[in-house]
Amino acid sequence: MVDPVPVGPAPDAAALAVQFSPQAKQQIADLLGRYPRKQGALIPVLWLAQEQFGWLTPDVLAMVAAELGLAKSTVLATAMFYTMLYKRPHGRFHVQICTNVACYLRGSDDLVKIAIDALGIRPGETSEDGLFTLEEVQCLCACERAPCLQVNRKDYFDVTPENLASLLTQLQTEGLRLGPSIGWPDADESDNHPAEAAHA
């Protein structure tokens, strides 16, 4: 077996449409020290890019490729493989309800119905105002406290229909205040109340 050969040239750094923040650049320098090959840092660098830009647009992927000296196709292949690396914009709140066996046995399907009714979107959809993405996800591995769900980085365990309903109401209020997530296409024009249309 041999080391992988580059499949093509890296994009020209001078022609990039977007740039990493100075802080991200520092973190990347640290990450590169952790792996004997630059591509080892690819997934952590994609995480950094997603944190800064909200999702991995073609421009962002080109920036990552230039940063690590990799072909765009190499970066795209990895980005496409992993579900948590977003290839399209996501809502401010990514509501992920586990519907795998243990949560199903403990009533997760009722939770999905409640979320659909409250948010007006189906699993896999994002609300037009960019506030919510709803998803049915696979086992979050907290089955002793099923049913469970995750909103962005926070876990919720032993979820009941009542506390899900109040959580969603709370998030809606917070969403109106914060507006859509970074990287949402209309985020710059959303100085009025973006959620009104969807909930009118």
Partner: peptide
């Protein structure tokens, strides 16, 4: 990479 559905030990 704990992900086997039903599992919650390494957590």
């Amino acid at each position: 990479d704990e992900g086997e559905p039903g599992t919650f030990k390494d957590r």
